[in-house]
């Protein structure tokens, strides 16, 4: 009888011990898994922030370098060309007095070449540093970009914004959107064989959106993602957007062509005033 009672207790205690052990195993696994996920998340965040910082630094360096080159072009080559033009003008006057037609025609040709070079230098300088963007904002900069493109191409480029007075955004956001717009339009011209490009700029309390649509041959966005076919241009767009927490979606409209929508959350305006047009500052630019 006593043995039977003892056996009951032994069994009860052994069973309870096993159940408790199982229970603690379950709790331990839950706790361990949660901790490992938190650690993994922290590591991912650190890596993500580090990559973002790297990208930011790389793009800042690129902008600084562009600015430096533009400044050198404007200050050094631009000045030299202006002086050359002046000297040629003086020389032209001297040659005109001699009345040699051959010399005069060579002089005219040289003068027009110098003038053309000055124009080229100005264009390159403007392309390198979008001064209109810094002074007047995104709307004007895009309009200026379109005007210049339409001069050189037979393309029809339309541009719409959802407000007449597009509010100024942070420097970084404006520059990012401008560069993305440049890249998307250049891609459409280079690869899409399109005749019409539509640019739409919209803003609300939360996002600034830029949509570039063309009527060209189009591409399959899924295929590009699956097969890692994105070129440097598309990767550059994604990198720029990653810094400002933006996103990009590529679509294939039913009517043909392709469409890209970039969205960036609205950022508070920085205290920094826009850079002056000229002379360029020689210091490092932080955008």
């Amino acid at each position: 009888m006593q043995n039977s009672e003892q056996m009951k207790w032994v069994l009860l205690i052994a069973s309870l011990a096993m159940i408790l052990m199982s229970f603690f195993v379950i709790l331990f696994i839950m706790y361990y898994q949660k901790r490992r996920f938190e650690e993994e998340k922290k590591l991912n965040d650190i890596e993500k922030n580090y990559n973002r910082l790297l990208l930011d630094t790389a793009l800042n360096s690129e902008e600084t370098e562009r600015r430096r080159i533009a400044q050198d072009l404007h200050d050094d080559i631009g000045t030299m060309l202006s002086l050359t033009k002046l000297s040629l003008n003086q020389l032209n006057k001297m040659i005109s007095k001699n009345g040699d037609e051959k010399e005069e025609s060579i002089m005219k040709k040289s003068q027009s070449l110098v003038e053309e070079t000055i124009l080229h230098v100005r264009r390159i300088t403007r392309d390198l540093v979008p001064t209109t963007l810094e002074r007047f904002g995104l709307l004007e900069a895009i309009e200026e970009f379109i005007d210049k493109l339409e001069e050189d191409n037979s393309l029809i480029i339309s541009f719409h914004a959802n407000t007449e007075e597009f509010p100024r955004q942070g420097q970084k956001l404006e520059l990012t959107l401008y560069r993305i717009m440049q890249e998307l339009v250049n891609n459409a011209i280079k690869h899409a064989s399109c005749s019409k490009i539509e640019i739409v700029l919209e803003t609300n309390d939360r996002f600034v959106s830029l949509r570039v649509t063309d009527n060209g041959v189009g591409f399959d966005p899924e295929k590009i993602k699956e097969n890692n076919l994105a070129g440097l241009g598309l990767l550059g767009i994604e990198s720029r957007l990653a810094i400002v927490n933006g996103t990009v979606q590529y679509e294939k409209p039913l009517k043909g062509g392709s469409s890209a929508l970039a969205q960036i959350p609205v950022m508070p305006l920085s205290e920094n005033k826009p850079e002056p047009l000229h002379p360029f500052r020689r210091e490092r630019v932080n955008i």
Partner: peptide, 17 residues
Amino acid sequence: CSGFLLYFSSLVCIAPV
């Protein structure tokens, strides 16, 4: 898994007896 673990843990000591 948790359900089965608890059930078989409760059975493992009693089953032999």
